[in-house]
């Protein structure tokens, strides 16, 4: 197996001095999807925020592309290829879809003209966004806003894409479409870290699964070695 693009080992993090994650390790490979699962409050989002640079690291290491990530400022991590799509479709609601996508490419440090030509990549992936390009992002449906959020992240030409609950609040048919797009992105060589409540949908597309509970890893395995999905579901729902 090739070296992982991102290796997180014994991560301890939280909000300010408040500790939410004690000892979490996971790895993400280029061209593969790692699903990070766990029940509400288990520390999934907190871990992603630490990788993105939003939360302070209290202990452990994060190695990205062979170098430590902890000392890199959050806005510079984007330029290194780390893109984080937050939970809850955090698009810039008052700005148009096109402006949202352009902002996604901010870290490329290109002139606006040059960025405009990058938009085609995203419109190919999500044709509906081309039709809605001049509408305020806040006026779009939930699924379309999720596409804007993912499109923004892709504009930055990431190598590592972290998706936090991309299926949250979406209709089942839309979830299927979003997951299909996520699989396509994997085929293009992206390393994807997927956080999901929808365990089955995530397991369908994932290559590797890490389950955490109360800030610690309880399952860490390639998906094809998992014979009992119920065990994973139990750990995620907390029966």
């Amino acid at each position: 197996m090739t070296d992982p693009l991102l290796t997180v080992e014994h991560l301890a993090t939280g909000y300010g001095d408040l500790r939410a994650v004690w000892d979490v390790s996971f790895r993400v490979w280029s061209g593969r999807i790692t699903a990070l699962l766990g029940r509400n409050g288990s520390g999934k989002t907190t871990s992603l925020r630490a990788v993105a640079g939003l939360n302070p690291v209290h202990g452990g290491t994060m190695t990205y592309d062979g170098r430590p990530l902890e000392s890199v400022a959050a806005h510079r991590r984007v330029a290194l290829g780390v893109s984080y799509v937050q939970e809850g479709k955090r698009v810039f609601r008052a700005q148009s879809v096109r402006e949202n996508l352009l902002l996604g490419g901010y870290s490329l440090k290109l002139r606006r003209k040059a960025l405009e030509s990058e938009l085609a990549r995203i419109y190919d992936l999500f044709p509906i966004l081309h039709a809605k390009r001049d509408d305020p992002a806040g006026s779009l449906s939930g699924g379309q806003q999720q596409m804007v959020a993912i499109g923004q992240a892709l504009m930055a030409k990431p190598r590592l894409l972290m998706l936090d609950e991309p299926s949250g609040g979406l209709a089942p048919s839309v979830v299927a479409e979003v997951m299909a797009r996520v699989s396509e992105l994997k085929e293009s060589g992206l390393a994807i870290l997927l956080v999901e409540q929808a365990v089955e949908a995530a397991m369908d597309v994932a290559d590797h699964v890490t389950v955490i509970d109360i800030g610690k890893v309880v399952v860490n395995s390639p998906v094809h070695e998992i014979d009992d999905l119920e065990k994973i579901k139990d750990a995620c729902i907390g029966r």
Binding site: A52, G53, L54, A73, A74, H75, R76, V78, A79, S83, Y84, Q86, R90, V91, F92, R93, A94, Q95, E99, L102, L103, G104, Y106, S107, Q152, A156
Partner: peptide, 19 residues
């Protein structure tokens, strides 16, 4: 554009690489 984005959600702006 980045300034207007910041005014709506500064954390999301940071995640797009805006200082």
């Amino acid at each position: 554009l980045a300034l207007v984005a910041m005014s709506q959600d500064d954390e999301a702006a940071l995640l797009r690489g805006i200082n």
